Each structure stands twice: as C-alpha cells, then as structure tokens.
Simulated scan of single mutants.
Amino acid sequence: MSGLSVDFRLPVACPGCGSHLMRVSQVKNPDDKVHCASCGSYVCLYHEACSVLEKGPGSESEALIEKAVNRANR
C-alpha cells in the first residue's frame, strides 16, 4: 500500500504508539483518513491534519524535524 500513500510528520503523536509519522492516500482528499505509519491506528481526517500543520510545531526543534521530514511532500 505504500505506493498509493504518502507519509508525513505531525507535531501531534499517535495516541496508540507515540509515533509522529503519519500516512494518507496519495490523493489527499480532505475526508481521507490519516493513519499512524507505525502501528496503523486511525488518527484523524486529512483536513484536520492540515489544520494542525498550519498551526505549526510547538517548539523550534519540532519545526526543524517537520521541515526535514515533510519537505518532499509539499
């Protein structure tokens, strides 16, 4: 399924395992489900994830990590 999906990092961790790496379909429709890339748990809808990304990271170190991980997907 990795060929049909895109991984990205959220500043909010997965409630199941604590990972910040998330997975969404390549299409990125607002109502697409975002799942944890590590444990596969449902986290939120893509439009909700976009809202979290727009708010920005909580710290400078989070900002640097997100910039490095998400640069290929934007």
Rank of each mutant, 00 (worst) to 15 (best):
M1K: 11
S2C: 02
G3A: 09
G3C: 07
L4R: 14
L4W: 12
L4T: 15
S5H: 09
V6E: 02
D7F: 04
D7N: 08
F8I: 05
F8A: 01
R9I: 05
R9G: 06
P11Q: 03
P11T: 02
P11H: 03
V12C: 11
V12W: 07
A13T: 07
P15T: 06
P15I: 04
P15Q: 04
G16Y: 04
G16I: 01
G16T: 07
C17T: 02
G18K: 02
H20G: 05
H20R: 13
L21E: 05
L21M: 14
M22R: 03
R23Q: 11
R23A: 01
V24M: 00
K28P: 08
D31A: 15
D32C: 01
D32N: 03
K33Q: 01
V34W: 00
C36A: 10
C36T: 04
C36Q: 01
A37S: 12
S38Y: 13
S38G: 13
C39D: 15
C39W: 13
G40Y: 10
S41E: 13
Y42G: 04
V43D: 00
V43Y: 03
C44K: 08
C44G: 05
L45Y: 12
L45D: 07
L45S: 07
H47P: 02
H47Q: 10
E48M: 13
A49W: 03
A49P: 02
A49Y: 03
C50E: 15
C50D: 11
S51P: 08
S51T: 14
V52C: 08
L53H: 14
E54Q: 15
G56D: 06
G56Y: 06
P57W: 10
P57F: 08
G58V: 05
G58R: 06
S59A: 10
S59W: 07
E60I: 06
S61T: 08
E62F: 11
E62T: 03
E62L: 11
A63K: 12
L64H: 09
I65P: 01
I65W: 08
K67M: 11
K67Y: 11
A68F: 09
A68M: 12
A68H: 11
N70M: 04
N70C: 04
R71W: 09
R71S: 11
R71G: 04
A72T: 12
